[in-house]
Design a protein around this nucleic acid. Structure first.
Lengths: 264, 264
DNA sequence: CGTCGCGTTGAACCTCATCAAGACAGGTGG
DNA sequence: CCACCTGTCTTGATGAGGTTCAACGCGACG
């Protein structure tokens, strides 16, 4: 068994901990090094895979930035996610063996290709790999549930705040320090993702800047008051109107759009 | 190896095709028959598993009906799904090894318990089982994307229409004929799921009934004009106002909330 | 310099949330 | 059996948040 070229060796990749399982034996690592046989470059504005295409591979962003777009029969479409280095795309294809969304590079990007067939074969001998894949799919589902909450019960201001904090957190997880966020996507993309119009996105950003919570200069955003943003992301608007959450835990809250949980 | 009691044998279950892979050898089937070692009954209003509990099992609805609820830190919560016979719950727990939502029975129910550990062990020897699990998780992700579209870019009327059609389709997939849908959940649950208030749900149902598209009698709904409902579910409201989609394909559409796809 | 894509801002309208009142069914106790 | 109560659903009136329409600023690019 020859050693694959360094360029495609996962063990030599600084993103390894983001997309591969940890705690493998060196023997297992060596097997995994053969997994990524292909790298592809995608120019800004071009697609990596398209909806309805046959599902064959998963993709990991190596450098660059992507959005995924889902479309309805009648031509409507919506951004369903943004992906940065180390994040996995294409999981939606596993259900019907077809991709259900289109992945578009928002800047010149580099992608690792994981052929599903090889991945599954390898997973037969490395259970950890199998579990890891399950975990990643589980994360995707959890991420989706968070988006439900955002789309179903948050105001524009809270959506934007959540969005910015989410981006910042992911950048921090990649080692970036500071509070600067460069928005790789357009306002249109943000609006589509958050279920808002482009005007509302723009207005809300301006409003947050006017309050001093962030600073905005086109695509360059700085989170000046992360805490305050967090507050906004949680309480829609009504300023935490329950009197004593500890003293009256079962009190019926008059909270805005949130029916109470029917307890067991 | 003894044969497990009939009551927990998947091969003897009429729901098998809904939750188990097809095309297995009889030998594999025999192994799978040992998978479901437990059945649990959940009384209406009680929970099957709760958010933050340790993830150990997946659950398949055998009889009855469930909703899942996700909660935020600040007490808000939202229905994230409804589950009927043959559908799998608990997949969200695979990401963090904790459930992220709470499953509540909306009527007295019967559930098959799949211990994740055993499931994974068995999947090591039956690749088809592994693929099947992947497929199911993929379906869940696709389902979530459809919900994004609904929550992000549909009007109340379109959301309700989609919701009713979705329920009807799932009932049909289970062999029910006719256009009757019994709503097992309250208006509050529906509203939470669709990102609407209870009043809007009620009003929209009344409105659809007034138009003759459905009939409503509390929890009993009949879909009188499925295709008309389909229309409503797709075009928000503006009655397909582009003049000649074929002659002017690149014309800027005045469509309500849907920015155009940035092509590759 | 003109054009085009993108972003911002203003004004009017509209959908839907909110507040409020009442209808209806199911359950309990007299 | 009725009165009563509670949870659920319906309907109306009002207002706010966000969409829609429109105009303009700005930078990139040919």
């Amino acid at each position: 068994m020859h050693t694959p070229p360094t360029i495609t060796r996962c063990t030599a990749c600084r993103l390894r901990q983001l997309c591969m399982p940890t705690g493998l034996t060196s023997q297992q690592m060596a097997l995994i090094d053969h997994l990524v046989s292909t790298r592809v470059k995608v120019a800004r504005g071009h697609s990596l895979f398209r909806a309805a295409a046959t599902f064959k591979s998963l993709y990991v962003v190596r450098t660059g930035f992507f959005k995924t777009v889902v479309s309805t029969a009648d031509g409507h479409d919506q951004v369903s996610g943004f992906y940065m280095a180390g994040e996995l795309m294409g999981l939606d294809g596993m259900g019907l063996s077809k991709y259900t969304c289109t992945a578009i590079a928002l800047e010149d990007s580099d992608v690792c290709v994981l052929h599903m067939h090889e991945l599954n074969t390898l997973a037969q001998t490395i259970p950890e790999l199998q579990w890891h894949l399950q975990k990643i799919m589980g994360h995707e589902i959890v991420r989706d549930h968070e988006l439900f909450l955002l789309l179903g019960s948050m105001r524009a201001q809270a959506r934007i705040a959540s969005f910015l904090l989410n981006l910042l957190a992911r950048l921090h997880a990649r080692g970036q320090s500071g509070n600067a966020v460069r928005l790789r996507m357009t306002r249109e993309d943000i609006g589509s993702y958050l279920g808002l119009t482009i005007e509302t996105v723009s207005r809300t950003l301006s409003s947050l800047a006017r309050k001093g919570l962030i600073s905005v200069q086109l695509k360059e955003v700085s989170i000046l008051q992360p805490q305050a943003l967090h507050q906004l992301a949680q309480h829609d608007d009504d300023g935490d109107c329950q009197q004593h959450p500890l003293l009256a835990p079962r009190l019926r809250k008059p909270a805005s759009r949130t029916p109470k949980l029917q307890l067991a």
